[in-house]
Design a binder for these strands. Structure first.
Lengths: 202, 202, 202, 202
DNA sequence: TCATAAGCGAGACGGTACGTCCCGTCTTTAT
DNA sequence: ATAAAGACGGGACGTACCGTCTCGCTTATGA
C-alpha cells in the first residue's frame, strides 16, 4: 500500500491556485477542452507542472474546481440563492428557466460547463463530483420551490418533487447538451406549461 | 489546387472495415474512449494506421460509424421499427421507455454510446452527426406515435409533438448521462404519467 | 521476456542519423556534455526525440557513434593508418606522440573525447565499447610498430609490446585526463626517451 | 552589492555533515554517480536539502569532501605517510604499486573514486581540486622516494623525478580508468621493471 | 532570562529534462 | 491502387530533480 505521500495543504500557494483556475478557464474557453493541456495551463499560469499534479489528479478536476471557485465568487455577491417565490409558480419557473437558457448560452460559461459535463458522462468519479457539487445544489432549489408550491396547493400532493424537477430541467439540458434543437425563452415557457399541467392538482 | 485525392471507395477492403469497427467498439468498451487510440484500433484490427486515416477523419467518426453499423445489423432483424400502437398510449410509451432503460443499462451498449454522446457534447460537428444519424430517427418514432394519439384525441390538439417527445426522453437521458439518480422501470412509468397529463386534452 | 520490438533498420533515415551526429558533436563542444540533452540534440537536428530513443540507448552512445562516424570520415582520407616506420624508432614515436598531444589539445576534438572517456570511466558497458572501438585500434598501431622494432633488434626480445605501449600512452593520457600538468611536445619527447631506454635491448 | 551572506560555520551541525558524507558515499557506491541526487543524499542523511546547498556548491564537491574526510580518518591511523625506503628501490616501488592495485580494486573505494575522477575529467574546476587535494599529495610521496634514490645514485642524475613518477603511475591509472586490460600485481611488477630501467643511471 | 537570530528538517515552488505514448504523414513492399 | 507495416517530426504526458524559497522548531548566545 505505497501511499504516495500527501502534500501539506497548509503550505499551499493561494496565488498559484488562483492563477491555475484562471488559466484553465481561459484556455478551455479559447481553445476547447481537447486542446487544453496541463502544460498549457501551467505555462499560462506561470506555474510548474508539478504544482498542478501535486494538487489535482487530472485536467478535468482542475477545471471542476476552477468552475466551482468561480461559482462561489459569484454566489458571494448574491444574498439569497433561493428561487423566486412570488406566489405565481408558473411565472417564477419561467423566469428561472429563461435565466438558465441565457446562462447556458453565455460564451464564457458554456465551454467549461460542456467540458465538465462531457467528462462526467464518461468518467463516473468526476461525474459524481460534478453532480454533487454543481448540479444537485441547484436542482435542490427547484425541489424547495416545488415543495412550497405543493404546500400552497398548487401542485398535486402525491407528486415526488425530485422527479418533477426533471420534467423542467431534463428536456432543457437534453437540448443543450445534444444540440437537437435551439434553446430559447419560448421553449422554456413551453416546458413550464406542459410540465406544470402534468403535476397540477386535479 | 493540389486537392488531396479522394480514395477510390470501390476498391475498399470490406474485411478491414469490419475489423476496424469490431476493434473500435471492443476497445472503447474495455478501456474507455480516452484510452482508445487509433494505433490501438489499427493494431487490434490487424490493419495499417493509414487504412483508418484514409477512410475516417477522426476517432470519433470511426466509433460513430461502428456504432451505426451495429445498429443497422440489429435493425435488419426487425421488420417494423415503429413504436407499438395498441391504442393505449400510456401503456405503449411505458413499454418503450422501459426498453430504453434496459438498453441504456446494457453493458455492451453503454460504453460506446456514452463515448459518442460525450464527444458530441464537446464537438459540435460530431454532435450534429450523432443526433441526425442516431438520435433523431428514434425521436421521430415518438413524434409519429404522439401524432397518431393526437389524431385519436388522446393528446391536446395544440401540443407540439416534437416538444412533447422531450418531456419523456429528456428527463430519462438527463438521468442517464449525468447519473443523478438511478434509472428504473418505475422511473420510466412515473415520467409517462406526469408527462402524459401535461399534454392531455382538457 | 517482453522484448521491446526491434526497429527495422533498413528503413532508417540516413539524413536524420547524420543530423543527430552533427548536433550531438556541436552541442557537446559548445555547452559541454552535462548541459547537452537529448531534447537539445533532437531540436537542433530537427528530429523527433523518439528517433533518437529508437536507435540509441543513451546520450553517451549517441556521442560515441557520432565520434566514430567522424573518425571514419577522417580515416577515409588517409590511405595507410599505420604508424610511420623510418627505421628510427625514437623519432617515429616522438612524431606520433606529438601529433597525439596536438589532437588532445584540439578544441573541436577535446570536449567530446573527454565526455566519452569520462562516461566510460563510470559506465563499464560504454567504457568497453569506447575502448574496443576507439582506443584499442590505435593502441594496436603502436603494438605493430614496436613489434617491427623488436624484430629489428631495437627493442629487447622479452618485452611484451602491449605492456610497452602503455609506457608511452599511459602517462600522456594520465596528464591529459586529470590535467595534472600541461601537455607539450617536450613532455612527449621525454616520455619517448625514458620509456625507450626502459625497453631497449641490453 | 547584495553579497549572499556566508553562513556562520561555527554553528554548523557536525552531525549533519557526517550523515551527508556517509549518505553520499553509500549512494554513489550503490547507485552510481549519475543516479545519486542531492535529494537522495538529503533524504538518506535525514537532512534538509538546504543544509547541503548551504555548505556545498555541487554534488561533486560533496562527494570530494566526503572522500577526503574518509581519507583523513584513514590517515590518522598511519603515523608516517611516506613510501617505504628499504634501500631496494625496485622492491619498494613494487610494494607500493601492488598496494595501489589492491586499493583501486577495493569495491568500497572504487565507485566514489571513479565518480570523482570522471567528474574531474569533464569539470576542470573539480578536476583541479581532485588533483591538488587527492592526487598530487600521493604523487609527491613518489617524487620524494625517487629523489632519495637519485641521491643514492640509483636513478640517473638528469631525470626529472616528477616526470619519472608518471612512468609508474600513468600506465596503471590508464588501465584502471579505461579498463583496457586487467590490473594485477604482475602488471605492477612489470611496470616497475621497465620504468626503472628507463631512468636507471648509465 | 529571555528575545532573537542562526542553523536546521521539511517540503512547496517555478522550472528543465526525462523517457513514453500517440498523433497524423509519409514511404516501402506486397497483393 | 489499396493494404500492412512502421519510421518519421512533433507535442503532451506524468515523473524526477534541480536550486530557491518559506515555514516552524531547536539551540546558543549577548542585551
Amino acid at each position: 500500500m505505497a501511499e504516495t505521500r500527501a502534500p501539506d495543504s497548509t503550505r499551499r500557494s493561494e496565488r498559484s491556485r488562483r492563477a491555475i483556475y484562471d488559466a484553465a478557464l481561459a484556455l478551455v474557453g479559447e481553445a476547447g477542452y481537447g486542446r487544453t493541456t496541463i502544460e498549457g495551463i501551467a505555462a499560462r499560469a506561470g506555474v510548474g507542472k508539478q504544482t498542478i499534479y501535486r494538487w489535482w489528479p487530472s485536467k478535468a478536476e482542475v477545471l471542476l474546481e476552477a468552475f466551482l471557485a468561480r461559482g462561489e465568487q459569484a454566489a458571494e455577491a448574491v444574498s439569497d440563492p433561493a428561487l423566486p417565490d412570488t406566489g405565481d409558480l408558473a411565472a417564477d419557473l419561467k423566469q428561472v428557466l429563461r435565466l438558465t437558457v441565457d446562462e447556458l448560452t453565455d460564451p464564457g460559461f458554456e465551454a467549461p460547463y460542456r467540458a465538465l459535463a462531457a467528462e462526467g458522462v464518461i468518467n463516473p468519479e468526476l461525474g459524481a463530483r460534478f453532480v454533487s457539487r454543481l448540479l444537485e445544489p441547484s436542482l435542490q432549489l427547484y425541489v424547495d420551490r416545488l415543495r412550497a408550491a405543493q404546500e400552497a396547493g398548487q401542485v398535486a400532493a402525491g407528486v415526488d418533487a425530485r422527479v418533477a424537477v426533471e420534467l423542467f430541467v431534463g428536456p432543457l439540458t437534453h437540448r443543450w447538451l445534444l444540440r437537437t434543437l435551439p434553446l430559447s425563452h419560448a421553449y422554456a415557457d413551453s416546458l413550464v406549461e406542459y410540465a406544470l399541467r402534468g403535476i397540477a392538482p386535479r
